[in-house]
């Protein structure tokens, strides 16, 4: 019998609310708002209250999928990244760098977001950069 809470940050948007994941015997069973967190002060929105639900969701992606013909097939990270790099290079060569763009995510850290825009501006050469928290 084990029940503990893990203090973490909500992954849904850029606000960064503090929440407690309720862990029972190694399984995440619920969410509580962190009462003493300076950002949300014990409050959460509906996404935060349900932030644990995707963890065990059937549709959750746990491995990269690469489209082969009409189907998506599980692939290794090396294979997936290689496919992406080759396609990007090909598209850039045939249609120019502005035919590419990226959406980053509030689920990433600041540093990851920085790196994504960097790779698009510096390596690919486009300003087509956007982010879901820029609402």
């Amino acid at each position: 019998m084990e029940y503990r809470t893990v203090l973490t940050t909500c992954t849904y948007c850029g606000t960064g609310c503090g929440l407690l994941l309720e862990v029972m015997d190694g399984e995440v069973v619920g969410v509580l708002p962190a009462k003493t967190h300076p950002i949300n002060e014990g409050k959460l929105c509906i996404k935060g209250w349900n932030a644990h639900e995707f963890i065990y969701a059937d549709g959750r992606l746990t491995k990269p999928l690469v489209r082969k013909g009409d189907t998506l097939e599980e692939a290794s990270w090396d294979e997936a990244l290689e496919t992406i790099a080759n396609k990007f290079a090909e598209i850039k060569k045939t249609n120019g760098p502005d035919s590419l763009g990226c959406f980053s995510s509030a689920k990433c850290t600041n540093e990851e977001n920085y790196l994504l825009q960097k790779i698009f501006r510096a390596a690919i050469g486009t300003n087509n950069v956007d982010h879901c928290a820029r609402l």
Partner: peptide
């Protein structure tokens, strides 16, 4: 008792915890 549901200090934050 076989467990005590109380509050634990987690860094600066007090959080619920089951002591066993």
């Amino acid at each position: 008792i076989e467990g005590f549901l109380g509050i634990r200090k987690n860094g600066l934050h007090p959080v619920p915890h089951l002591f066993t």
